[in-house]
Design a protein around this nucleic acid. Structure first.
Lengths: 201, 201
DNA sequence: GTTGCGGTTGACCGATCGGTCCACTATCTT
DNA sequence: AAGATAGTGGACCGATCGGTCAACCGCAAC
């Protein structure tokens, strides 16, 4: 069994198209065409459009994980990890804005927001990825408290609140199709966690 | 020309269905059927599904405005306005959760998130409603600064950051299909605006 | 009474939807 | 060389998609 890149191409383009457009507006035919894969092959690898989507987004998450593991390395001072995380989001959104002329927002949040009332598998996937993102933030905040960079408090709850803020901000950047919104990530984030900007700069 | 309730029913059910499901998964036929309106009438009132959706959501906003005008009445102390706003969101989401068994999230944010890369009219509408919500928050925060309930700072920027947080939180409540997430609205909000809980309670 | 008009009805359109089916090929095992 | 197996190709399915159309209705103005 040689390495099958038809399947990989399907995963890749499915995520790409659905992120750029939406789940509902992307058809199986469109995914197949752009992947240069015929329908028969599609349904050889996946049982449904929904199943492909879950696989595609989990595949994408595995890639993002690599970047996040580097960004949230415990070798880096905690507040610098946050800075790098924010910078990464901004860089990512900017890249796709230049490519598509649109702020695409967070793919997981957008998909979850569109389908969480309709497709339980997709909802669960979006939820789990959200929780994993929170876990990066949680350990970072715990380390920041340990280093007395920020006031002590429940790190898990604080991480979630920070995550809510970031996710909301990115969504608003998408809706207003305006990258400048992202420049406000730090100011609000530091307010939430109780860090002064001086401690960061 | 007597009052036409076919059109009203279309506006009502369109918002209801799209909120409960999603724009992409709701068909014109479905909207017509639930409204007990025939397709021909639909396209007598609206030129497209997109146009109906914009009209339906603006119609819905006009209703919500009434509630918000009451909640954000300048007769009420500023921090109590915020409390009432949060309570209203929670009440609203709870109501629809009991009805549908799902946390539906913010209809405007969900629709905007799904379609802002695809339908400019819908994106613009979602953006404008988002800005209007911010304006309620802005004057409230300005009043709170005036009353020295919270530290002085740019009220417009602060209102937006507060809005990001709330919108993100509601979206996460939808994705995790968990109303309990909403109980964290105050704690994060007060952190952002710099109010102590004591000042509120 | 007839003309004009906002509104209604239901048949109809081509295109596309997600998904099925089966013949076929390329590769590896024995 | 034969067989098994993973993957490919493409025709095909019924259902549904958003949208059109022309006939028709009740009613008010003239």
């Amino acid at each position: 069994m040689r390495f099958c890149d038809s399947k990989l191409r399907l995963l890749q383009t499915a995520h790409e198209l659905i992120w750029r457009q939406s789940y509902g507006s992307v058809g199986v035919d469109q995914i197949c065409e752009q992947s240069r894969v015929k329908k028969g092959s599609f349904y050889h690898f996946f049982r449904s459009k929904s199943e492909l989507t879950v696989a595609a987004y989990e595949f994408r998450w595995d890639q993002i994980r690599l970047a996040l593991d580097r960004i949230f390395s415990t070798q880096v001072p905690p507040l610098e990890r946050l800075e790098a995380y924010f910078a990464n989001i901004r860089r990512n959104q900017t890249e796709h804005f230049l490519k598509n002329g649109r702020v695409l927002g967070c793919p997981f949040a957008s998909l979850g927001s569109e389908l969480s009332t309709q497709d339980e598998a997709i909802r669960l996937m979006a939820q789990q990825i959200s929780e994993r993102k929170c876990r990066y933030l949680e350990t970072t905040l715990r380390d920041a408290m340990e280093a007395e960079d920020i006031p002590r408090q429940d790190p898990k709850l604080l991480a979630q609140e920070l995550h809510f803020y970031v996710v909301g901000l990115v969504q608003e950047a998408k809706i207003s199709n305006n990258l400048a919104v992202l420049d406000r990530m730090e100011s609000g984030a530091y307010r939430i966690i109780g860090a002064t900007r001086a401690e960061v700069a």
